[in-house]
Design a protein around this nucleic acid. Structure first.
Lengths: 266, 266
DNA sequence: AGAAGGACCAGTGGTCCGTA
DNA sequence: AGAAGGACCAGTGGTCCGTA
């Protein structure tokens, strides 16, 4: 449901930002999640692939039949212009409301969340290949999945970025209302993405408090979230907040037992 | 049930092999699974600990309160004899019947399986510490667990050994009748441990065939087995055997359809 | 300044092979 | 020879910090 929503939002963004985007649509559209990529590709220069010496073999991320290397239905690394040019970075994110299109050289939060859905698609593909081959099958988005995504042409997906915003995606999955409200509030106040990202922790910790503090269980209970590692920072916040809550509860109980606040006041 | 059985068997073995074993019983017995260790310790020389330069901090395997470093209720590394002597290896395993005591400088298979139960105990301790501290909590017997076991004094537990025999333990868990029968047969024929170990694969693959070939699901469905990684070799055997079975089934269907065996006979 | 991501690092899963 | 396990190695999870 929200995936379709995100794609809708971006197809608009595509119309707004687009331009030279149709050129790569053929090769990118194959995976069925092509709409977003086109937009970004419109701004992105040809990436130079940095092949290391060794060619690893035998894992699900290799031997992607002909989707790898552009399949030949388009110009590939050598043979076209812009050979020496560095790959452009993705546009930075800005805080957008749900459904809102980012203007200028920016990306919106619907697009951010859509990247998580794409990673899920890539994971499912890696899992299917692994099962077919009788190899061990990842349950999480691992390095292997990021490598697979890159080989599949989704060069705008990378581990540091995805890990950076996992807890934001978690809030979006677990309490979309709260997530949407937070986005609107931070957009209104003109906050930057970093501030919004920081603010996502608090409602998540509150949610964990209501559900017994087990943040791993909370992630695992949600099918789209279960494939993501719980971020260290979120785990730490839940832990220390639980300790605080327990200490406060103990203090309250103690003051109750002693019949007032005049006995061991800390 | 079978753990108690194993411990019974060993307390006999202790009486047989024992001797200088009581000396370490105090420090080893703490964990409640001390009986086996005593036997082995009777033959083992003081181990010299090889402390590497860096002292890692902050994980559940560190800071074992005073169980570490022998707690001072006995002589520790420095200060007693046998300082320079190398640690003795464990006695090699021999094929024993269920309940049978290994004679001489050998260990029996009940003892082998007991080591898996001990690892499980160590995992549970590591998990409890991790939960307490709000750190990520292992679901499998990881390097961290082996490190913890070593620090807890169980120096006879090591990763290569445990991984080597996992599938033997799996058969013991999943079909104890078949496992026992195999042990008796191989003991009778005077086979060595390597031959018995190899032979454990076949009944496991047959069991997997009956349950839809998903060896991961089979491991995960068993509470004591779920904490062990599926051995690569076992996974490979299940995969290739499934392929063979599928090919055979296809050939049978094909010969059925063609009404005989005169059409594409391979 | 705020942000994206290449690249590094400590510790992992896996098991080989020098050892006894 | 058969077997135990120290120690190595490729690829992991995690994220810093040089880059734009």
């Amino acid at each position: 449901a929200d995936t379709a929503n995100a794609i809708d939002a971006l197809s608009q963004e595509g119309a707004t930002v687009g331009g030279a985007s149709t050129a790569r649509e053929g090769s990118r559209g194959k995976r069925g999640v092509g709409t977003w990529e086109v937009v970004v590709a419109g701004e992105r220069k040809k990436q130079q692939r940095r092949k290391k010496g060794k060619t690893r073999m035998g894992s699900a991320d290799d031997n992607m039949n002909e989707d790898d290397n552009e399949g030949g239905d388009e110009d590939d690394d050598k043979g076209s212009g812009e050979r020496g040019s560095e790959r452009q970075r993705e546009h930075p994110f800005i805080v957008t409301e749900p459904g809102e299109v980012a203007r200028g050289k920016k990306n919106g939060l619907d697009y951010l969340f859509h990247l998580y859905e794409q990673c899920r698609d890539f994971l499912i593909q890696v899992q299917n290949i692994a099962k077919e081959r009788g190899e061990k099958c990842p349950t999480k988005v691992t390095n292997q999945v990021f490598r697979y995504a890159k080989k599949a042409g989704a060069s705008y997906i990378n581990k540091p970025k995805m890990r950076h915003y996992v807890h934001c995606y978690a809030l979006h999955c677990l309490d979309e209302e709260a997530s949407n409200a937070l986005r609107r509030a931070f957009k209104e106040r003109g906050e930057n993405v970093g501030a919004w990202r920081q603010a996502c922790y608090k409602p998540l910790v509150a949610l964990a408090a209501r559900q017994g503090w087990d943040i791993d269980a909370i992630f695992n209970a949600h099918p789209r979230l279960a494939i993501w590692y719980v971020p260290t920072r979120l785990r730490q916040l839940c832990h220390s907040e639980r300790s605080n809550a327990a200490a406060a509860a103990a203090a309250a109980a103690s003051s109750c037992i002693s019949g007032g606040a005049d006995h061991l006041p800390f």
